[in-house]
Design a protein around this nucleic acid. Structure first.
Lengths: 364, 364
DNA sequence: CGCATTTAATCCATAATCTGAACTAAAGGT
DNA sequence: ACCTTTAGTTCAGATTATGGATTAAATGCG
């Protein structure tokens, strides 16, 4: 029905830049009449805006371009991580309209005060943009999640925390914030704000090593939301002990505590280069398994791997070429992430915006 | 629009067994009027049939149950494998209406004569069920595929074979057969004809080791259709050489040539038990990586692993428990496949039927 | 046995929405 | 000025979902 067609038209506007009604009719296969009616609805909902056509020297009446409007609808992205809290407001055009971060050692605190502090941060951030209507909120957490709860976030010390149960849950548009894994959201952030292609595996090198697979703009979440745990993929049977209690996991080779700082590498420290070689080879082995299983179009190294990329990438590529050469035409390209440490908060906001674009009728 | 609602109603009938129009209205949220009109369309298309309600001792007018009809629409499943060709016709209810297999050593032949023989087999099989309207055909091949071509099937010796290019392509309803990987289709076959849950990783132990992930009734295919190559997932860095040119792949530990025959195991051969332990441990390691990345709801061992299941499973489970215990509430359940070597042909037919159920309007 | 009750399914008028043709609007070319 | 070209709207018509009333077919009770 019309909800579907609204999403179809809005999707074309979001994907293909500013378009006239005539061009939209061509692209969607709908008639000009229908497109006009749908665009009128989108205009009154504040989702799109008109702009005089920037066109020169062509025959015929110039069309009016329809583009996403950043002036009305926006989304709230939130993040709780080991060393900080973050909040941001992103409008429909992808422009960051407000952003706040506070440093905090959340390992030492219980969930309630941490979420209360996040609540204050969210309120302050929202106060910066009083004119925007917030369509929803998503919270990024480094751990496993489901629906409205954090199952287990080892680095925060959280276990089975229902955020809607807290005395004063963070609500936007009468609905509580949804929770999602940090690596998954960072992947979405890279999709929306980075330079990655439409189909890639994002590798998040943070306190742990996670991954998020983006396919056709959607995320692979797994049966219980636990997909993408790249950090505990087998690198060597009987290898070094890992924090998880097992042996030979990727995290034991390429986790944050065994990686050299960029400073050591810039100083040409031979020990640091050797550590990168070891981590790069291990990453290559784990990623070769991931490529065999998931067949991503590209691999994007994010988080703490970004500054180390020049030292890691040659080793990763060497192992991928070696292990995948005979199995496929070419291994997927390996790229550094274009987004920084804020990829996850931005991705959290992006997830809300994707929902709005996919179902504009739900806004009213 | 109505195409969507037709699929909605048909989906409920297919999923939830026979249902009355009133029950369908309840389930779909549509009005009884709309459901009646949609069911009338489905009846005239021959997709569903009416049956007098089997109900006893309840008040009120008894409803007429609507169920899938096996009398009109069916699908053709085809398979080319190393040692045989197979074809089957499956109707909408999932009943196999015709089935033929011929043994053939396809390693020795070029693609053209093999596909010509398959064409004859398909024609013979279709001649057994002249009253059924065939909605489409899918061909299962042990190798990597894309759209209408086989990219590389190492065990057949095929490379870049376009099946629509052959002089007399296999056509059904004016469209050529689609091609799909054998392990993926076997997964679908297990979903439709086996006892597996709705969400699982199917492991196909055939000449190579492949896997197919079923999620919500759909298949994970990957960016280039190469997903599910479990056979070359890393088990041990620097392990034994694999046919692919690399080292330490699962196939080198648990491929067909290193597995004992069931006869040796039944005779309590200690060497055979040791080989199963080694293969089971390797499978466990590779599957632990797969679970960390994909988070399947269950794992189903199929193909040649079925008769070996009692000897393999304890070792697989032990490794999964050991490696996943701390990371998730419980590892996914490990089950033997309920379907036999015909899982892939049946799955090929099932894929056609899924298309019909998802878009009944396309049949006319 | 007849009638109220209950549930299933259809009939019919209404409303929403997409379509297609005709029409108006706004530009360039001659 | 006037024709051509392209954009967008108006208006009648067709399709399809909705909601209430009606008919159909069973059970239960007097």
């Amino acid at each position: 029905m019309r909800a579907r067609n609204l999403a179809l038209v809005l999707g074309e506007v979001a994907g293909g830049g500013p378009l006239t009604r005539a061009a939209l009719a061509e692209l969607t296969g709908l008639t000009k009449t229908t497109v006009s009616s749908l665009v009128a609805d989108l205009l009154s909902a504040g989702l799109v805006a008109e702009a005089p056509a920037a066109r020169a020297g062509e025959r015929g009446r110039p069309g009016v371009e329809v583009r996403l409007s950043g002036e009305h609808v926006a989304a709230l992205g939130l993040e709780v991580n080991v060393g900080y809290l973050a909040a941001c407001v992103v409008d429909l055009t992808g422009t960051v309209r407000a952003r706040r971060t506070v440093r905090a050692d959340n390992r030492a605190s219980r969930p309630e005060p941490v979420l209360a502090a996040l609540h204050r941060l969210a309120d302050e951030t929202l106060a910066d943009v009083p004119s925007l209507r917030i369509a929803g909120a998503v919270l990024a957490v480094p751990g496993t999640v489901g629906e409205d709860r954090v199952h287990h976030a080892p680095h925060l010390g959280w276990r089975d925390v229902r955020i809607t149960d807290l005395t004063d849950p963070i609500r936007v548009a009468d609905r509580p914030a949804a929770v999602e894994n940090e690596a998954n959201l960072a992947a979405l952030g890279e999709l929306e704000f980075g330079s990655a292609p439409r189909d890639f595996l994002y590798v998040s090198g943070e306190t742990g090593v996670g991954a998020g697979l983006v396919r056709d703009g959607g995320l692979l979440r797994g049966a219980t939301g636990l997909a993408g745990e790249l950090g505990h993929v087998v690198v060597a049977d009987g290898g070094p002990a890992c924090r998880c209690g097992s042996r030979g996991c990727l995290e034991a080779y390429a986790g944050q505590d065994v990686l050299p700082g960029p400073a050591a590498l810039a100083a040409d420290d031979p020990g640091a280069a050797a550590a990168c070689a070891r981590a790069g080879r291990a990453l290559g082995l784990a990623l070769s398994s991931a490529v065999n299983l998931l067949d991503p179009g590209a691999i994007v190294l994010g988080g703490r791997y970004v500054p180390l990329f020049p030292w890691l990438a040659p080793h990763v590529r060497a192992v991928l070429d070696e292990r995948l050469g005979a199995l496929r035409p070419a291994p997927p390209v390996l790229l550094p992430a274009a987004t920084g440490p804020d990829a996850a908060v931005l991705g959290a906001a992006a997830r809300v915006l994707r929902r709005v674009l996919a179902d504009p009728a739900s806004l009213g």
